[in-house]
């Protein structure tokens, strides 16, 4: 058995088991850790497929940012997970129904793919134009040329998100003391000190 196949089976097994563990783990922190394991082995699968850029993206974005954010939320918000599970039996029929429909759809899609080879027939044009270049470079070649419109628009989406966060949360409170380094540096003994002549028994008004 080739090394690649061994690596595939190991990582595929780890992905599936970690995915199951995410759902079944009792402790939410364990769930997030299993999620990270699933992401890592999925990234390994991407590398095996020759999509090293996607693998890096998965590790950097999902493991580095999203999963850590989950971890923070789970640890800091102190969500009562036993309370969340209370309605489990009540919502089981409808949730099971939705899940059943989705599973059925996925099976149908998979069967169609197996029979007709969905993307196989209308093969996706290779971004690199067939040349043997790494796919990070291939993406780099189209990102600012063919896809510049989408790329810039996605940047605007992020801008709107930033404006939204500021509009909805920033408050200018009066009377908040902030550090003003220029004022601190410009301070001299003449401006920093005042001579006060205190009368006995009165103290300083300030």
């Amino acid at each position: 058995m080739a090394l690649q196949e061994i690596a595939f089976y190991v990582m595929a097994t780890v992905t599936v088991l970690a995915g199951l563990a995410v759902v079944f783990a009792r402790n939410p922190v364990h769930s997030v850790l299993f999620l990270i394991a699933a992401f890592f082995s999925a990234a390994g699968l991407f590398v095996l497929m020759g999509a090293e850029f996607l693998a890096m993206l998965l590790v950097v974005v999902y493991v580095g940012a999203v999963a850590v954010l989950f971890l923070f939320v789970v640890m800091m918000l102190d969500v009562d997970f036993t309370q969340l599970r209370e309605g489990f039996a009540r919502y089981l029929p409808i949730g099971g129904g939705v899940a059943g429909i989705l599973v059925l759809e996925m099976i149908m899609v998979a069967v169609t793919v197996a029979n007709q080879g969905a993307a196989g027939r209308n093969a996706v044009p290779n971004a690199s134009g067939g040349a043997d270049i790494p796919n990070a470079e291939a993406i780099g070649r189209v990102l600012y040329t063919d896809y510049v419109y989408f790329f810039q628009a996605a940047g605007l989406v992020l801008l709107v998100a930033m404006i939204g966060a500021i509009v909805l949360t920033l408050r200018h409170k009066p009377g908040v003391k902030r550090q003003n380094i220029m004022a601190q540096n410009a301070r001299t003994p003449a401006t920093g000190m005042t001579m006060v002549d205190i009368k006995p028994g009165e103290g300083i008004a300030e």
Binding site: F150, A153, A154, L156, V157, V160, A161, G164, V167
Partner: peptide, 12 residues
């Protein structure tokens, strides 16, 4: 992208 751009602005 168009849908997300206008929806995000509308949410805010």
């Amino acid at each position: 992208v168009g849908i997300e751009l206008h929806s995000l602005a509308l949410y805010v």
